[in-house]
Amino acid sequence: MLDFIARRLVAIIPVLTVVAVLVFLMLRLTPGDPAAVIAGDNATSDQINDIREKLGLNEPIWTQFAIWIGNILQGNFGESFFFKKTVAELIAQRIEPTLALAMCTLIFAVCVSVPLGVLAAYRQGSVLDRIVMAFCVMGFSVPGFVIGYCLIYVFAIELGWLPVQGYIRIGVNFWQFLERMVLPSLTLSVGFIALISRITRASVLEVLNEDYIRTARAKGLSSRVVLMRHALRNAAVPILTVIGLGVAILIGGAVVTESVFGLPGLGRLTVEAVLSRDFPTIQTVILMFSVVYVVVNLLIDISYTVFDPRIRY
């Protein structure tokens, strides 16, 4: 088991190397000059060149890469071109809203979608099943920003129950923090709920055909016990897998959702950094997202052993 975790952690290194090279190259090889953005519209080409020199952008591309990697290995993620802060400070400042949004979405989505999927499977072909399936199709196909604006229109503008946008730190006022989390989490969780409830339904349906479900019924157990104790736990592995993969959706969705609801999180930081060609910030944020993704999926793999005693690493 420890051996397995160690090997998986070591495997992060090549993943990060590939991500680092790709991000670095893509940023340098696409048009757009950060120096020109910083200098503004009226700058002369000499001024721009000065700025390039100062940012180190006139060095050959491999030298730039070597300097960047060297700094990272020393724990220095560089200084933002634009915000006049180190990237580390910037991320520390922006991480809370994103973390809060991701957590709220995850908890909400799992709490809603797993029971929904189980019920849909148990009552296969019923009206409930059809409603859930229809919702899944909708959840997959409607883009996040559309859902976001619809929710804002109904709950914030027409009904006036919740604030339109903004963020209050969790430490400042918990209640107001929660109020401002409801709509963004709802928006972000729609796609996630669609995905998880679909896979839960499919997975539980498959398990319900297993012989041990028949055995459980032959023991005289109630439907609830058969479903929750025997079916769901056996169906857990695919569900967990999809939740792990879904973290990618969360990260992607955070970019859009934070913009719609004006949350000062990492998603919006990414958008701002891309628009202003803030290379060090973009690179670091993306590297961080890949680490999160790999680690979350490692945790998911480890959690399999809790649900299924046959899985041993």
Binding site: K219, N234, R310
Partner: peptide
């Protein structure tokens, strides 16, 4: 015919418990 994620004891225990 037996649930792979429960111990044999637990599975018989369910009968008595029910």
């Amino acid at each position: 015919a037996l649930n792979p994620v429960m111990t044999c004891g637990e599975q018989i225990d369910e009968v008595l418990n029910t």
